[in-house]
Design a binder for these strands. Structure first.
Lengths: 330, 330
DNA sequence: CTGAAAGCGCTTACAG
DNA sequence: CTGAAAGCGCTTACAG
């Protein structure tokens, strides 16, 4: 690999001068600049970012820790962040924890050792040792999806969005509403969305049969099975079902169809997340758009400001959501 | 940021010794090791990868250049790669060109300057100056999706897969088969898939009406419009339609339904790509599974071997595909 | 306008 | 078993 030393020798100047033309800093005579640029052209020399950042303490790399690499949410988040980062000359170093909690701490340290300028964490479950690690990290940090106290958080209003959706169903005349959730250790999707559902039901004086509340996982098959449970074990059949993700909702949709019931005539169905394909299933799915890309953009903008030295003292930004009404609810 | 120097001082040893316990290399007395480890624990010291790789010329980072960050194909590719890389302690540095060709060269240089150990490029359109740049890069390199001569390529058999799908439709009794493609500058998805379609038709002595061959873009709406063209302008209506991506196929599906025709009774429909939701539309979509994750794993494995010093002299690996038969074709 | 020299935080022959 | 010193490829006061 060719270095600044070789460029300097070939152009008959010092390394200092080469550095100056590279960074367009300080004075360099037109003549010297020409010679250096010519040699750089000829050799295809590219300065080493490592050596540079060893001095400058700046890498222009942001570490992004994802719970799962291949979900639509992760993708849209990364897409939103990249929109901002690309403009500012930052790149993303990916760290996929694959839902293994030990990996989070491991990757946080790894990213630190790589001297990323900042870290964005898309959090699902958070435990005290993780939070402790984050505090000690001492690197600009933003959490997305969960609120960690004392840190800067970009959050989705999981609780209120779910409540709104249930209220919407109630307004449509439904009184028997089932719920397909996920493990409550996932505070946002599991705990808060369930709380939103339960509170909305309670505030409207609607009873909740225990079989109406199912716990699934983040995939279509699980939605199918949860729906089987609801259909197979409930004394009173629900007239509407809310699933906390579109994937779960689509699984439920398959199951409802297979049992010969129609949507929305027999059962109304709603999802959450506004995944791309939620509008292309039949019937199109009523869902919540959480504006994940926007969350990504906000997180990126925030971390850039922190890197720029701004101290926001642990502010929270809540991304607005909207309810998308489609044919699956009547 | 705390450095090896400080650890050495606190533990009352030399930096050399600290380095040795860090890397578990050379001899260190049990006593010294204990002292050093204790100090590391206490301080939360993490060695700088930059300084390290400045010496060792190794970063354990692979640059991945993607044409678009938020497509299912990109995601599955990255997922496959990450499965392999995570095991071997490598991380992915993302570069999203957003389909802007100038960005490819720019990012290639940037990745080189960051001393990534290797680069994987998911290529769509390739132009001579890009290829030239790649040759000059002099870094372990693997291309996915397109075959670039002289390089190591992981390719999908776009031509044969499309031909197989058309043959399958013909075998089902179809003679009037329409085709929704994309710009042929995209060699794999645009050019080769179209060639597969045309050759299959010709070899079976089937005429192709010019209005049956439409060119769209990579989204659902475009499939909808292409289908409108086919339905609105063809003298003979096709009895089957093949779209080169599932997204295009789903757009076509919407359009066919809107015109009051049924699938597959009136028109059979096939897509390509086996996107997650292709099975959840109604009717479920017949499609080609290209095993993108596997392509990602193969690409990752290949680049690791190249990094390990193996010279494969520009080998090509073709990933097997399979046709998934579902309800949308009869 | 230019360059010698120090320093960023590591690793690694080399000598003891 | 241990450490002094050189060196990786840059940048940046400082001096001229």
């Amino acid at each position: 690999m060719i270095t600044i030393k070789e460029i300097a020798e070939r152009a008959n100047v010092s390394r200092t001068t080469v550095s100056r033309v590279l960074n367009k800093s300080g004075y360099v005579s037109e003549e010297a600049r020409k010679r250096v640029q010519k040699v750089i052209e000829e050799t295809g020399y590219v300065p080493s970012e490592h050596a540079k950042s060893l001095r400058t303490k700046k890498t222009n790399v942001i570490g992004v820790v994802l719970p799962k690499i291949s979900t639509e949410t992760s993708n849209r988040l990364v897409k939103g962040m990249d929109e901002i980062f690309a403009k500012e000359g930052y790149q993303i170093l990916l760290a996929n924890t694959n839902l293994e909690p030990e990996k989070e701490i491991e990757y946080l340290r790894l990213l630190k050792s790589r001297h990323v300028d900042g870290i964005i964490l898309s959090a699902t479950t958070i435990n005290p040792s993780l939070v402790e690690e984050i505090y000690n990290l001492n690197i600009p940090f933003v959490a997305v999806g969960q609120s960690i106290s004392g840190l800067t958080n970009v959050i989705l209003d999981d609780y209120q969005a779910t409540k709104d959706m249930v209220d919407f169903l109630i307004q449509k005349g439904h009184k028997q509403i089932a719920f397909i959730g996920v493990d409550e250790r996932d505070r946002a999707v599991g705990y808060l969305r369930k709380a939103g559902y339960l509170d909305a039901m309670r505030e409207n004086n609607l009873a909740v049969e225990s079989t109406w509340v199912q716990k699934g996982e983040f995939n279509v098959e699980s939605g199918f099975e949860c729906m089987s449970q609801i259909l197979g074990t409930s004394e009173k059949q629900p007239t509407a079902v809310l699933a906390v993700t579109d994937r779960l909702a689509i699984g439920a949709l398959q199951r409802i169809k297979e049992s010969g019931l129609s949507i929305p005539e027999d059962i109304s169905l709603a999802g959450m997340g506004a995944s791309e394909f939620s509008r292309y299933v039949t019937p199109a799915l009523t869902t919540i758009d959480f504006s994940i890309e926007k969350a990504g953009r906000e997180a990126a903008a925030l971390i850039l400001r922190k890197i720029g030295g701004e101290n926001d003292h642990g502010m929270n930004i809540t991304i607005p959501y909207r309810l998308i009404e489609r044919a699956s609810v009547q």
